[in-house]
Computed example of a mutant assay.
Amino acid sequence: MRCVDCRAESATTGAGRFRVNGNGKLLDVWLLVRCVSCDRTSKFAVHERTPVSSLDPEELRGYQLNDPELVASRLLDPLFARRNHYTLDWTGAWQLTRPSAWPDGAWPVRVDVVFDDPVPVRPDRIIARGLRLSRNAVLHRVTCGVPLRRPTAAGFSFTVLAGE
């Protein structure tokens, strides 16, 4: 998101706070974000003119208490990001840890991928980097339960077939 004051690109960070405003039986909820360059605060709409009765009581309590997990889940939600016209910069946000040596044994080999945090990344990129293969080779040698070219933030498993 571009800051309105300093025009810095991708310069906002979650301030960890919600603003809840009630008007009768309707609520507005915003997530406050701060520009890391000029310190200006902006807000992202979470709920607008929403009947209080339609909100989950635990979720409403989280908004009122500025629950850090709720802040993180909103910021990481791709639909929320699209609706509020921002994108998250995931550059350098993930790291692949794997054994130093590929196990000798019978092919095919099954591999499980686990995410500590929900960082969306394309499975073909993770697999290519981990196996030191081209992404084209990954498409030919790997079978997977998720689409290889579509970003995922959930763990998955794949099977590597023997090389030709």
Rank of each mutant, 00 (worst) to 15 (best):
M1Y: 05
M1S: 12
R2H: 09
V4Q: 11
A8Q: 11
E9A: 10
A11T: 09
T12P: 01
T13C: 10
G14C: 12
R17L: 09
F18M: 12
F18E: 06
N21R: 13
G22M: 09
W30S: 10
L31Q: 13
V33T: 10
V33Q: 08
R34F: 06
S37K: 14
R40C: 06
T41V: 15
T41S: 11
F44T: 01
A45L: 08
H47V: 03
H47N: 10
P51C: 07
P51K: 07
S54E: 13
P57H: 11
P57V: 08
E59P: 00
E59G: 01
L60N: 00
Q64I: 05
Q64W: 09
L65K: 14
N66Y: 07
R74S: 11
L75D: 01
D77C: 09
R82S: 14
R83N: 13
T91C: 08
L96A: 03
T97K: 14
R98A: 12
P99E: 12
G105A: 11
G105S: 10
G105L: 11
P108Y: 04
V109S: 09
V109L: 13
V111Q: 03
D112M: 06
D112P: 00
V113L: 07
V114L: 07
V114C: 04
V114R: 15
F115Q: 11
D117V: 04
V121Y: 05
R122M: 13
D124N: 15
A128Q: 09
A128V: 07
R129H: 11
G130C: 13
R132Y: 08
L133S: 02
R135D: 04
N136D: 14
L139F: 10
H140T: 13
P147K: 06
R150A: 14
F158C: 02
F158N: 02
T159N: 00
L161R: 11
L161S: 14
L161M: 12
G163Y: 09
G163I: 01
